[in-house]
């Protein structure tokens, strides 16, 4: 069960209209290494984790990724919400606009719609946790690319926060990996 809090995990203060930047940041809304893929990956894998601690880590991080997905959607919306059509024509956001208007829709920066094939649940907790650690590194790298192409201070501030969370998550999955390795090792002696 989940409880919804009607606020963002971290405040998003976007000061400009920038459809081109919105079209790039949507990568983290519906892309392979984005927040939705992260959330569904961890929330899907958690049932078969062999220890309660590992399950709890996946539940906590999967939940937080949903809050990040909400932040990314807010950034994309705020970058586009006040735009007249004339300001969208000729920008990379135009292709999004003809299909979705100003709705935020999960596709990547190239327009490819979200798919569950971006993640896996392998039936093997060690393999799953390695996928998760790789996912955190790929998300961190994506945020660094996005920070490099952003010029809105409010957007950069939110992206920096989200990037730091990926660093923390990598550490937590590393700890979960240790927990599962030690659990599996201890079982071999019984």
């Amino acid at each position: 069960m989940w409880i919804y809090e009607k606020k963002l995990e971290y405040p998003v203060k976007v000061s400009t209209c920038n459809p081109s930047l919105a079209a790039m940041i949507i990568e983290q809304f519906g892309g392979a290494d984005g927040e939705l893929a992260a959330s569904l990956r961890y929330l899907t894998q958690r049932w078969a984790m062999p220890t309660n601690q590992a399950k709890a880590i996946l539940t906590d991080i999967g939940t937080e990724e949903l809050a990040h997905w909400e932040m990314i959607g807010t950034i994309v919306y705020q970058l586009t919400k006040d735009l007249p059509e004339s300001k969208i024509v000729g920008t990379p956001f135009e292709a999004h606009y003809v299909n979705h208007g100003l709705d935020v829709y999960p596709h990547n920066a190239a327009g490819v719609p979200f798919t569950a094939t971006y993640f896996n649940a392998k039936g093997d907790p060690i393999a799953n946790l390695h996928e998760n650690m790789a996912a955190e590194q790929k998300a961190r790298a994506t945020y660094e690319h996005l920070i490099s192409i952003s010029d809105d201070p409010g957007v950069i501030d939110a992206l920096r926060f989200l990037r730091q969370r990926e660093v923390v998550h990598f550490q937590r999955f590393g700890e979960a990996l240790r927990i599962v390795q030690e659990y599996q090792d201890s079982k071999k002696f019984f």
Partner: peptide, 26 residues
């Protein structure tokens, strides 16, 4: 053929308002 991440020592916490800004308490 195993990956290890060191356990995190519990030390040096940021004040809460600073922790939120930075994205971590640690």
């Amino acid at each position: 053929a195993r990956a290890y991440v060191p356990n995190q020592p519990y030390e040096r916490l940021f004040p809460l308002d600073e922790a939120l800004k930075k994205g971590t308490l640690f």
